[in-house]
Computed example of a mutant assay.
Amino acid sequence: MRRLVVTENITLDGFISPMGDWFDPMVPDDELTVVNNQNSADSDALVLGRVTYEEFAGFWPHQQGPVSDYLDQVAKYVVSSSLDKADWQNTTILSGPLEEEIAALKATDGKDITVTGSTTLVRSLVPTGLVDLYRLFVYPVVQGHGIRLFEEHELRLQPVRAKAFVAGVVLLEYAYSG
């Protein structure tokens, strides 16, 4: 079974909704780039909520470089009950019950399935137990308000990896343990 990996940029105080440009590293960091490239290589599917999908689809297909190349070729799944058409190449709309759609996707052959951004979607996935790994890039910023990743759900998480980068970002990975 494939892993569902939630990858989020997050502030020290737990917010994932960006206000301004806090999610850009303060300084260039080649090691952070290598880790992000490896995470992309380990994933062949990207699940997005409608809002994030529309933001990505309006921007990334018009860019050049490794990120846009990856996003163009990766299988994209947009979770939406209102979207009836997705023009970005390799995009499928998932409009059925969330847990059933994601469980079916996890049961297919392939590499990791990544969910990024998509705060409403991610917060809906947290209590389902379908998320296998939380990959959090913690930025040295206190935002003070916004949307938090975790609400009032009790989760048991097992630390998997912690890594500090020169840019000030710290990668924390936690596996879901029930």
Score class of each variant (00 low, 15 high):
R2S: 07
V5I: 10
V6F: 03
T7A: 04
I10Q: 02
I10Y: 00
D13V: 09
G14L: 12
S17D: 15
P18I: 15
G20F: 04
D24V: 11
M26Y: 12
P28E: 02
P28H: 06
E31F: 13
L32K: 14
V34G: 08
V35F: 08
N37Q: 15
G49M: 09
G49V: 11
G49Q: 08
V51M: 03
V51T: 04
T52I: 09
Y53H: 06
Y53I: 10
E55P: 06
F56S: 03
F56P: 00
F56T: 04
G58K: 13
Q63W: 03
Q64K: 14
D72Y: 11
K76A: 09
Y77S: 10
Y77F: 13
V79W: 11
W88Q: 06
W88L: 10
W88N: 06
W88V: 05
Q89W: 05
T91M: 10
T92I: 14
T92S: 15
L94H: 00
G96P: 01
I102N: 13
G110S: 10
K111A: 13
V115C: 06
T119E: 14
T120M: 14
L121V: 09
V122A: 09
R123N: 01
L125V: 01
L125M: 04
V126S: 08
V126T: 11
T128Y: 03
G129V: 00
L130G: 06
L133V: 02
Y134E: 08
L136T: 01
F137P: 00
H145P: 02
G146W: 07
R148G: 05
L149G: 03
H153N: 13
H153D: 10
L157H: 05
K163V: 01
A164W: 10
G168K: 15
V169H: 02
V170D: 01
L171I: 01
L172A: 04
Y174W: 13
Y174S: 01
Y176G: 00
S177Q: 09
S177C: 03
S177G: 06
